[in-house]
């Protein structure tokens, strides 16, 4: 393995750790509400969970992967020091993507979960991934600019309400900063979305922990691969008017599961609940 492949593999292993404090363990992305509203029954836990994972993953991939891709590209340009891209311009561009994602995420429960997990990822970086010895160019980094300051500045702006800090944007910042290529980043993001749903299903007692592993190995992989393939051409269309030609319109973010939207937005109406979304 050459050095780059080894670094990427190592970063993938780190980020795939289910103990990472990213706040995803309090999110069910609507699964709890889905069960509460009578979709799926205790006897059909595996089937219902898989149905939900498929629909949720498809809709999330369609909505978010263009944002991860575009934000990742913005950060990579800055990290590479390409044509002296300034921090201010980079944050402004991320801010535009973040605002567009906000305008596309109207469900208040999803907004809350997305921004909570977004800032958690930036905190994970500043507290967990920065180099404690203050070495500018360490073994894990190709960066010619100081990304620690960048992430700190981004967090500050979120705290001051100048940015929302949505999950796909912050995920792109984290992964681009750590040197994970865009397509790997999207692939891992979608995998983690699916895995978080399975963990939620285990906590909700709909499936057992062994079934969860079986699903991850045999059922989730083709689902994630399929979505990565389907979404390979998606971009946010930021700055463009909404086009409507057969080619362009379909490359823009969209949700694909209206029922999931309704049920996820009703999360807070549940008489009792264990998740935040």
């Amino acid at each position: 393995m050459d050095r780059e492949v080894r670094i990427v593999s190592y970063i993938l292993i780190l980020l795939a750790d289910s103990n990472l404090p990213t706040g995803s363990f309090v999110a069910s992305s609507g699964l709890e509400s889905y069960f509460k509203h009578g979709f799926g029954s205790p006897s059909s836990g595996i089937e219902a969970t898989l149905e939900f994972v498929q629909n949720s993953l498809e809709s999330y991939a369609r909505s978010a992967s263009g944002f991860v891709r575009d934000a990742h590209e913005v950060v990579v340009r800055f990290v590479d020091g390409e044509r002296a891209v300034r921090l201010e311009d980079t944050l402004a561009k991320l801010g535009e993507l973040d605002s567009l994602y906000e305008a596309m995420t109207l469900n208040h429960v999803a907004r809350r979960a997305s921004t909570a997990q977004g800032i958690a990822l930036l905190t994970l970086y500043t507290k967990g991934f920065t180099n404690p010895y203050g070495l500018a160019n360490d073994a894990n980094s190709n960066s010619v600019v100081n990304m620690d300051n960048f992430v700190v500045e981004m967090k500050l702006r979120i705290r001051h309400g100048k940015l929302n800090g949505h999950l796909p944007i912050c995920w792109a910042v984290l992964t681009a900063t750590l040197g994970l290529p865009a397509e790997r980043s999207i692939w891992l993001h979608l995998f983690l979305h699916a895995r978080a749903l399975l963990s939620a299903s285990v906590r909700l007692n709909a499936i057992g922990p062994y079934a969860s592993q079986q699903l991850l190995l045999h059922s989730v992989r083709p689902l994630v691969d399929e979505q990565v393939k389907r979404c390979a051409h998606l971009h946010t269309g930021l700055g463009e008017e909404m086009k409507d030609t057969a080619d362009d319109g379909d490359a823009l973010p969209a949700s694909t599961w209206p029922l999931g939207e309704i049920l996820a937005a009703r999360h807070d109406l549940q008489h009792s609940r264990i998740f935040n979304s």
Partner: peptide, 21 residues
């Protein structure tokens, strides 16, 4: 609305999100 556990889906369901910002 106080959503209790349903054994099957309701005939009609709706959601409201306030866009405060």
């Amino acid at each position: 609305i106080e959503q209790m556990q349903r054994s099957k889906p309701d005939e009609f369901v709706w959601s409201l999100s306030i866009l405060g910002k």
